[in-house]
Design a protein around this nucleic acid. Sequence first.
DNA 1: GATAACATGACACAAATATGACAGCGATAT
DNA 2: ATATCGCTGTCATATTTGTGTCATGTTATC
Lengths: 233, 233
Amino acid sequence: MPKHTILLVDDEVAIRDMLSVALEAADFNVLKAENAQQAHAMIIDHQPDLALLDWMMPGTTGLELLRRLKRDELTAKIPVIMLTAKAEEDSKISGLDAGADDYLPKPFSPRELISRVKAVLRRVGREDLQEPITVGELLLDPLGHRVSISGQPINLGPTEYRLLQFFLTHQERVYSRGQILDYVWGGNVYLDERTVDVHIRRLRKAISVAGHENYVQTVRGAGYRFSVQLQNG
Amino acid sequence: MPKHTILLVDDEVAIRDMLSVALEAADFNVLKAENAQQAHAMIIDHQPDLALLDWMMPGTTGLELLRRLKRDELTAKIPVIMLTAKAEEDSKISGLDAGADDYLPKPFSPRELISRVKAVLRRVGREDLQEPITVGELLLDPLGHRVSISGQPINLGPTEYRLLQFFLTHQERVYSRGQILDYVWGGNVYLDERTVDVHIRRLRKAISVAGHENYVQTVRGAGYRFSVQLQNG
DNA sequence: GATAACATGACACAAATATGACAGCGATAT
DNA sequence: ATATCGCTGTCATATTTGTGTCATGTTATC
């Protein structure tokens, strides 16, 4: 089981430290940010599994950051728990409205935080990544981290696996090499875009059994697409 | 995917250089301007995909330039990110009010800048071109970058695809070859206007199923038109 | 039927993508 | 430590596909 990465955003050092200790004790990787700008950059760079946002922060508030995250497809699916001071009662409503997954009024115990975090991860984990996806004879099982065609196991490198998983969860749509780098490699890696070509090739090669490589389609001048429909007529 | 072009406007050479290096590293084309006049001219000439405007500049300020851009239809759609010094807290409001797409308080890291730029480009890129367009049995799906007639996939080269997309979004109106070159090929290319004829021909050929080629109509002495109504009455 | 505007097919060149090889790197085993 | 192995990103090269121009054939208009 890979460790989950949690991004913790709060402007007060003391709170950041306390919570990060608690989270690390619960076996999470913790990233810290003290303002919305930093947080946003980290989210794009590291694609954490969950973000804890303080409601009130100098500059851009947590709520604003939340809205921004939800507006962008790349970050929209990252679950968010808002941390708010008790006074701000109605913040709950606007927070959940804006797409927060949970809401935790201060003061709260580290123990409570951990259980909420785990609950949210369980919930979204179930929805998104956990169920096997199958296309034709191709099967990708996220739980077992396995891929097979007609029952025959397929060997993929980590990158090819993520690439395939990305394609399977984003079918019938073209993605530019840049987008693919963002989604599969994570934001802000400066790689040659041609690198994508090479991994596409490796993926195709790996799944080239009974024509399954034809699902991975080249769209000249635009990028690549995973599609069940054949390329031409 | 064509490279995006970013216009960077700041009066300080050091900042211009630093940011332009970062942007180029992220594979953008970068145009630089040191004042609002220059910037305005460049925007009209080169139609960048996005503009980064420094808030405070000698002479016309970034905010003024922003307002001017939003007032002119030709430039209104170009997304703008404002760069502001930390002190100017409320500038945020007026900036977003005036139509800026994002707002980035100094100091910021190049990385943060890149991720904002990408986020904005993703967001605006999505708005316009997203919805599938259908005419008769003809279907163009921008997301999948696909064209089909009665469900049968049609194979188009990149240029023919753009040409068709242009026609579908600008129906029932004649465009001269020069205009078509501008819109489909982009502003500053010098090509023989007859080239348009050839691509019209290729497009017609590609969609000549069940008479769909008749939508692309020749208007003698004027140019071409995409129309659902038949040519001669 | 003369003339200008457009259509068409062919072609050389350009651009985009596919492919194979390789060196660096980190993890694991020895 | 050191050797080994699998994975990655980059490069050079091959291959495929798209592009603009031209020469020539067709059509509309007067």
